[in-house]
Write a protein that binds this DNA or RNA. Structure first.
Lengths: 232, 232
DNA sequence: GGCTTCGCTTGATCCAGATCAAGCGCAAAA
DNA sequence: TTTTGCGCTTGATCTGGATCAAGCGAAGCC
């Protein structure tokens, strides 16, 4: 593994506060792997053998059942996923696949649990991480239950602009098919939602979106910090 | 506070592993309160001043926005809620109200955070509790996104029967209006869902439900341990 | 008893979003 | 260049569930 990777992982909130020797022992037992796009990493129902950390690329967490499939979350570098299953020695509730070529670090679950029991810094960091994850899922649920499809798309654009420091022109980080699934709708309806929003201050051309009148967009989508603010 | 209450709280997984003195200090600083039904306990957006523990009664967690309201979870005794907000010193993401007369213990958030930092047993228990909460929300989301309204009702009945040790006759623990909201549908549709399920092995009369043919019900509703098993 | 209230059911209609079915545009392969 | 394929759009139709609007029956109250 590159030392730059190790530094990156070490600086994640989850690993920043633990003792150096425990961090070293986790990293030593870990596997670094490269995957092309569209590779199944994990399957829901399998026992949680590893904690995953995405270093590069993008991983989609999704669930199936009743002949349907639904995207639950999108993991962007650098962050971990499947922490809860790892800690509980339980099975995964979601499946995971790469949606672009990715570099992923796998830490054996038993190592994580062992260190968790002996390192208070790590334990405290996991508490924070889990609380954050929990709140994200709650926000995602509210987003889904309290908003229409068009509003979800609009608020997604607003968030995207915020992440781009308010630039007028933003670029979609994933294909529209995947984006639709992320936002809980079909690709057809995403298309229609974009058209609908052209009357509310945006201009779409391919993967590029121009926010021509943010005030109008905001007035229509009514972003809510209790749903959209990812920092709290 | 009654000592029987204290024992009950102490035996919760969240408080079972902490040092006695820390437990005592939490309980000493706590407030025990009684509320009638339909009292607003907390409002989303407010700062998390307390960790709540429901000792008796029932508390509904719900969210509002866009002129809509949606039930997020139902808290039954004896358990805690709003742990994540408490830990992160953040604001509540959900509002809470009693739906029957309830006894609730309030522990100041700063006490929880203080003890969390000094008691490894408590910290470890919080990790488990948060992981469990996280997984419940994920399961609830899957239930909502992957199933139709009728299937959700059917699986709810199946779970209810399991909790009643497989008795043929079960009783709804909450009114149908609230139940509908819990299951993410309108009261009208809950009514229709019950009618629809009469063809699949159940018989409804008021708040009492007879499971006449569990095999048929199960075949129709296809319960999934990755959604319905609350113990994993 | 009659009267209200409230929780529930039932029927009719409406609507957001899914599904089905073409078409279109662009990029890589031939 | 043409061809194939894929991602996206557009239009038409379908459907699960919401909404609107009565009815209905049991519990409380006068």
């Amino acid at each position: 593994m590159q030392s730059v990777d190790i530094d990156q992982i070490r600086s994640l909130p989850l690993f920043a506060t633990m003792a150096q020797e425990n961090f070293d022992s986790l990293v030593t037992g870990a596997y670094l792997q490269r995957f092309p796009a569209q590779v199944e990493l994990i399957n829901e129902g399998d026992l949680a053998d590893f904690l995953y950390i995405v270093l590069e690329g993008r991983v989609e967490l999704y669930s199936t059942g009743n002949d349907r499939e639904t995207t639950m979350a999108m993991i962007t570098p650098v962050s971990t996923f499947l922490l809860a299953a790892t800690i509980k020695s339980a099975c995964y509730l979601m499946s995971g696949r790469t949606i672009k070529a990715s570099r992923v670090l796998l830490i054996p679950s038993e190592d994580v649990r062992r260190v968790l029991d002996i390192d208070p810094g790590f334990s405290r960091a996991i508490v924070d991480e889990l609380a954050t994850c929990y709140r994200s899922v709650v926000k995602a649920t509210k987003n889904l239950k309290l908003r229409t499809a068009v509003e979800r798309v609009g608020n997604y654009i607003i968030r995207l602009q915020d992440k781009s420091d308010g630039a007028d022109m933003v670029e979609l980080p994933v294909g529209k098919r995947v984006l639709a699934s992320m936002l809980g709708m079909t690709p057809e309806n995403l298309s229609r939602a974009f058209s609908a929003l052209q009357s509310y201050g945006i201009l779409v051309s391919g993967p590029r979106i121009e926010i021509t009148d943010r005030a109008v967009l905001v007035a229509y989508c009514k972003p809510d910090p209790l749903i959209d603010d990812m920092t709290s």
